[in-house]
Design a protein around this nucleic acid. Structure first.
Lengths: 353, 353
DNA sequence: TAGGGTTGTTGAAACGATTCAATCACCCTA
DNA sequence: TAGGGTGATTGAATCGTTTCAACAACCCTA
């Protein structure tokens, strides 16, 4: 039923080769012929068969986007950037949500291999690039997303999380906080490890105390639970530096439920500057990452590599995070004094957008 | 370089047909042969070529997910549901973000047609199913997502938005509010129109006044702007019923900036119950939709139709929204009295999860 | 006018899987 | 032992493109 090249060729009275040329190298075809073919295409409603084209070409005009969790607003914005850039370049995007499960990631990588995708943008679920080897051997363009660069076999785009960590702790430090708690998900998430490195490094350089409050995952629920536990055990800190905004939101929930005030009793700073950071119970100070741009850049790198495999050199793009100061951070209370901070001690609120 | 069926066949000393049988009808192959083939597959690291299979099969094991805006948390959760169900059924998901632009939607539909996807889950950018006709004619399974059912040519899953609208306005009505403002994006978005119908219908039945505050889009910025404008012009209402949570969040920002208190001076209710509704400056009362389930159901319907085209009958699944009462709604202030409501007049806060 | 360039068009061979009629190798029974 | 039946395997056609060597038609120049 659906029209094929052959049907178009028959209708236009030319060979299939010519129709193919009209599609792919219009300049090689004489104007009158081209016109005839084009109207045949139009009349038959011909839409090229991508699988056939991909079979012949040995690769599909498709990119795989492999992320741990698309419902994390960070990846959501990245996905938009990837998708826009891909569409501009004539590629489609296959969405692969790993849930941070290695098995699911493996499964998806096999599917992408089977689909013969041209490129993959991935935030790997684990430290090793091992599962990607097979794809790389096949010549698939891979770009690591927000994941520490490893070797020079692939491109990568990332945010400088170490700087991000330093930025966060530096901010509360400049407000006079000396005892800091670092609330984070599992350290085997590379981005988290880098942020923590930045935090600890800065703390060491400036003589700050850092207590780690381990959270089960990077979710609000986990952040809430971690802080609740720490409070029950008598947490000694005046500022919570959180590994991401979800954790920070959870942390603030736990603080509120314990009757502690943010930022009066405890300053809280997040990471990611998700859309709702500005609208949280107390607008959240955070570290902003250029998410959409990150996604766009990743897709552009991959497409660039696909387009010109020979001259391509792998690049590492580092995006710098920026501090967004809102209301959840304030000068440290004097040790031993009242836990109620007056509103007038708050720093001015900056609300970009 | 990559191994093909032929390579596997050669290695195992059988014909390609047999290898194909091992893959697709293992029971047709004698055990020893099967073992030999399987180890050849393993040794060569053979991964089937999906384009070739799809070319032959005339359709790809792929579903298209066409949504207006993946960064809207509603669609994000739907996407997860779709993706999980698709993966379970052996399908991949192609992500298509239309930005509510008809042209972009058309472009994506053509791409999906070209890819020969088996099914499409779509929230159309406009009222008509016209752009889908071509796909339907081709036998592609289509399921409408959260969009009014039209005709019986396709399946659909949706939330009963009219009930949702009634639920929202019914809630504030039961708190004593008589003058309501309806804050909404463009009415040509069908879901919004349905919610509005529910609101107006209920208001008519109960003698409430409804003022419409048109917002440019379904975003926080638009909600903020709409309410800001209305306040400047002397809005006469005690409750804002918002077409979604993003708008509600924006509305609350505008109220806060104008020195109005929520819910003391103005009750606000949203729609969608996105993740952050519970953590907003004032925890937001909202209407919850079963988002993930909606996505799963949509994907299952599509897959069901793909699997058994002959006996398939189109179904419409209606999911019922539920009211989630939090702190942003309170009894209406007495007409003409102080604009400051005491905390004790608030209804008890219910925080499900 | 023969020969050499251009320019346009053709036809057939891939690409890698699926499918199905045909064949083969057995075993069982009459 | 011939013949029928069963189960396993094969081989070739097919899906719809792309690509490229070969060919055709034409003009230009020597």
């Amino acid at each position: 039923m659906p029209a094929s090249l052959k049907d178009v060729a028959a209708r236009a009275g030319v060979s299939v080769g010519t129709v193919s040329n009209v599609l792919n190298r219009p300049d090689r075809v004489a104007a009158p012929t081209r016109a005839r073919v084009e109207s045949a295409i139009h009349e038959l409603g011909f839409v090229p068969n991508a699988p056939a084209r991909n079979l012949r070409a040995q690769r599909a005009q498709v990119l795989g986007l492999v992320v741990p969790d698309i419902s994390n607003p960070f990846f959501t914005d990245v996905a938009r950037g990837v998708e826009d850039a891909a569409l501009d370049a004539g590629y489609s995007v296959m969405l692969c949500n790993t849930d941070e499960q290695a098995a699911r990631e493996d499964r998806y990588l096999t599917i992408l291999e089977s689909q013969r995708v041209s490129g993959i943008i991935i935030t790997p679920a684990r430290q090793t690039l091992r599962p990607l080897d097979r794809l790389l051997a096949r010549g698939v363009a891979v770009t690591l997303l927000d994941s520490p660069r490893r070797g020079s076999e692939v491109c990568s785009v990332s945010v400088d999380h170490e700087t991000g960590g330093r930025l966060a702790v530096g901010h509360v430090s400049s407000l006079g906080h000396r005892r800091i708690a670092w609330v984070a998900g599992p350290r085997d998430i590379p981005q988290v490890a880098a942020r923590e490195d930045g935090v600890r490094e800065y703390a060491r350089e400036h003589g700050l105390t850092v207590t780690a409050l381990p959270a089960e995952s990077m979710s609000a629920a986990a952040g809430e639970e971690a802080v609740r536990r720490a409070l029950a055990q008598g947490l000694d800190a005046t500022a919570l530096v959180c590994a991401n905004d979800l954790i920070a939101v959870g942390a603030m929930r736990a603080l509120r439920d314990s009757g502690l005030r943010v930022p009066g009793d405890m300053s809280v700073i997040g990471y990611d500057d998700i859309d709702f950071a500005a609208s949280a119970a107390v607008p959240l100070t955070s570290v902003r990452q250029p998410r959409y741009e990150l996604g766009r850049a990743a897709a552009e790198l991959v497409v660039g590599e696909c387009r010109d495999r020979s001259t391509h050199v792998h690049r590492h793009m580092d995006f710098q995070p920026t501090l967004v100061v809102r209301a959840s951070t304030a000068p440290a209370p004097d040790r031993g004094t009242s836990t109620t901070a007056s509103a007038s001690t708050r720093p001015p609120v900056e609300e970009p957008r």
